[in-house]
């Protein structure tokens, strides 16, 4: 089912690539500010986690958790910035599947939309690694 869903997303998007912005937009009724505040909160939480676990050096699951927090932290910064940069872009810069990057802001936004996913995947991956390490640790003691 999951695979089917993903196939559908890919098919629909490749066939109809109109207004394809990789980073989620948060305008309108929701408001950019509330979303950006959530990002800041997330940023703070991950920073706090890193600070609290700074003394842990050799404990494998915590190391993975710290790595996950680092990548979540970077992802938050990139996404936070990308959302702000999006506000400075003009609709005329988008022509079908082409984007006119004529200044630094445009280039940064373009890079941000691609990079944020990379860091999100890495953050989620290390979060999963934390759980897998814990599972392995318990499985080892059970066996």
């Amino acid at each position: 089912m999951l695979l089917g869903l993903c196939r559908l997303v890919i098919l629909v998007s490749l066939l109809y690539p109109s207004a394809a912005f990789a980073t989620q937009e948060h305008g309108g009724a929701e408001g950019l500010v509330s979303h950006e505040l959530a990002h800041l909160f997330f940023l703070f939480a991950t920073a706090y986690l890193l600070w609290k676990t700074a003394s842990i050096r050799s404990y494998s699951p915590y190391i993975q958790l710290r790595r996950s927090a680092v990548f979540f932290f970077i992802w938050n910064i990139i996404t936070f910035t990308t959302h702000i940069l999006r506000e400075y872009l003009h609709p005329a810069q988008f022509k079908g599947m082409l984007f006119r990057a004529d200044n630094t802001i445009s280039l940064l936004w373009y890079a941000g939309t691609i990079l944020e996913h990379l860091f999100l995947v890495l953050a989620c991956w290390y979060f999963l690694k934390t759980l897998l390490d814990l599972k392995k640790l318990f499985h080892h003691t059970e066996a």
Partner: peptide
């Protein structure tokens, strides 16, 4: 002009 396809691909 930059293509938006890389962003789209990375998104999916």
């Amino acid at each position: 002009f930059l293509s938006l396809y890389p962003g789209l691909l990375v998104d999916f």
